[in-house]
Amino acid sequence: MPCIQTLSAYWARGLCLTPGDFVIYWVGKAATYYGIGAAAAKIVNCILQDARAVMTISGPSEYGVSLSLPRLIGKTGIFHIFMPEFSEAEKEKLDHGAKILGETQAAIIHDGELVG
């Protein structure tokens, strides 16, 4: 089991691995799409088991565009959005980023249909 030995070596040295790293080493491939698949599987599992877990998931926001924010999820979807407290400078940057996303979205989507 070279995978387990590799992970144990990381942990023994005090290095932190993310779930994506775990999947990459577990599968034995150096490809990030395995981490994306693992994240998607975790989200689906939380919904199917009504785990009511807090996860950073992209979804509707008060800005009119989807943002990745901590959300409480379970079998009916998103129960609650935890909006982090931002400094004034951070809030301005978030407002600016959301505005750019909105403008980009408006340029490629009309009446719910992708243009182009």
Rank of each mutant, 00 (worst) to 15 (best):
57 I>Q: 02
20 G>E: 06
63 Y>P: 01
66 S>I: 06
113 E>N: 09
61 S>W: 02
14 G>S: 13
38 A>Q: 08
28 G>Q: 08
109 I>N: 08
54 V>E: 01
10 Y>I: 08
56 T>L: 08
24 I>N: 07
99 K>N: 12
39 A>V: 04
37 G>N: 08
46 C>W: 00
90 E>T: 04
65 V>P: 03
12 A>H: 11
53 A>P: 00
90 E>I: 03
90 E>K: 05
88 E>T: 11
88 E>M: 11
74 G>P: 02
30 A>N: 12
104 T>P: 04
40 A>N: 03
78 I>Q: 03
82 F>M: 01
111 D>L: 14
25 Y>Q: 09
63 Y>L: 03
112 G>C: 14
41 A>S: 02
64 G>I: 12
43 I>W: 00
116 G>R: 12
19 P>I: 00
24 I>V: 14
56 T>K: 07
76 T>E: 08
71 R>H: 05
103 E>S: 14
104 T>G: 15
81 I>V: 15
38 A>Y: 05
5 Q>M: 10
56 T>A: 09
82 F>K: 00
59 G>Y: 04
66 S>F: 12
44 V>H: 01
95 D>E: 14
21 D>F: 04
68 S>Q: 06
23 V>I: 14
32 T>A: 14
60 P>E: 15
101 L>D: 08
53 A>Y: 04
63 Y>G: 02
28 G>D: 08
49 Q>M: 05
34 Y>T: 04
108 I>K: 10
11 W>D: 04
86 F>K: 03
79 F>H: 04
7 L>F: 07
108 I>P: 04
18 T>V: 03
116 G>A: 14
105 Q>T: 13
104 T>Q: 13
28 G>H: 08
49 Q>F: 02
47 I>C: 01
97 G>H: 11
104 T>R: 14
46 C>E: 00
104 T>F: 14
65 V>T: 08
102 G>D: 09
111 D>K: 14
15 L>H: 06
75 K>M: 06
78 I>S: 05
65 V>H: 05
36 I>C: 05
81 I>Q: 04
10 Y>C: 11
67 L>D: 02
81 I>D: 03
30 A>Q: 10
60 P>R: 12
108 I>H: 10
107 A>N: 10
37 G>C: 13
93 K>A: 15
91 K>I: 06
2 P>K: 13
26 W>Y: 13
25 Y>A: 07
38 A>W: 02
81 I>M: 05
30 A>I: 10
104 T>H: 12
74 G>M: 05
22 F>E: 11
80 H>V: 05
31 A>C: 15
42 K>F: 03
65 V>M: 09
36 I>K: 09
5 Q>L: 14
48 L>V: 04
97 G>E: 13
37 G>K: 06
26 W>M: 13
101 L>E: 10
